[in-house]
């Protein structure tokens, strides 16, 4: 698609009444936002619902949007806030957390038909254990970790997205990596992952 028209230009077009501009923005970001949320909430249906909610909120707020930051940063901000809310609700209702453990991840993971099925099961199991470790991070640690590692955001952009000082972002990131080290190291030292 013609990335010649940048996001902020599309927003301006939308604000002056061109509906299609919003469609173009959704087309550009739906996959990114969906993957980000899938990694964050690790539940397919919830990730989809929150993705829809992100664009719903964006649509309604876009009229008053001002280009202080990049459009994408703003979109990630909406998504991050919703993901953090989601995790908070989950903590308050531990029943859901239990249910989530039972959700088979198989359909989330792209499988390769040509590889050895036993190996595949082992790989999936390893992936699941590691993703569960990431789930144990605090919501903010998790958000910082995901945004900086997988969404290609600079620390400065992560800071804008999460309304934090850049130094705070670093602290969260360091804590996240150290926590993951504490959780995963015994497993890889015992060849369990």
């Amino acid at each position: 698609m013609d990335k010649l028209i940048d996001d902020e230009m599309l927003v301006a077009q939308f604000q002056s009444g061109r509906q299609n501009a919003f469609d173009e923005l959704m087309k550009r970001y739906k996959s990114k936002i969906f993957s980000y949320l899938l990694r964050s909430v690790r539940n397919y249906e919830d990730a989809e619902d929150i993705t829809i909610e992100v664009f719903f909120k964006a649509y309604r707020a876009l009229d008053n949007w001002q280009p202080k930051a990049k459009f994408s940063t703003w979109l990630y901000k909406i998504a991050s806030n919703l993901a953090i809310d989601y995790h908070r609700t989950k903590v308050r209702h531990p029943v859901y957390a239990l249910e989530d453990m039972e959700i088979p991840e198989a359909h989330l993971v792209a499988t390769d038909l040509h590889s050895d099925p036993v190996q595949q099961v082992e790989d999936q199991e390893r992936g699941r254990i590691i993703r569960e470790a990431v789930d144990q991070l605090s919501p903010k640690q998790k958000a910082v970790f995901m945004l900086s590692r997988y969404e290609g955001l600079q620390l400065k952009e992560v800071a804008e997205t999460l309304d934090m000082a850049e130094g705070t972002v670093k602290i969260h990131l360091h804590r996240a990596v150290k926590r993951l080290q504490t959780l995963l190291r015994p497993l890889w030292e015992n060849n369990e992952i």
Partner: peptide
């Protein structure tokens, strides 16, 4: 090692085209 393992585990999660 931590980053490698988590990168791999996250890369496995993909959103199918159909869902989008």
């Amino acid at each position: 090692t931590v980053l490698q393992l988590t990168d791999q585990a996250q890369a496995e999660l993909r959103v199918p085209e159909l869902a989008l």
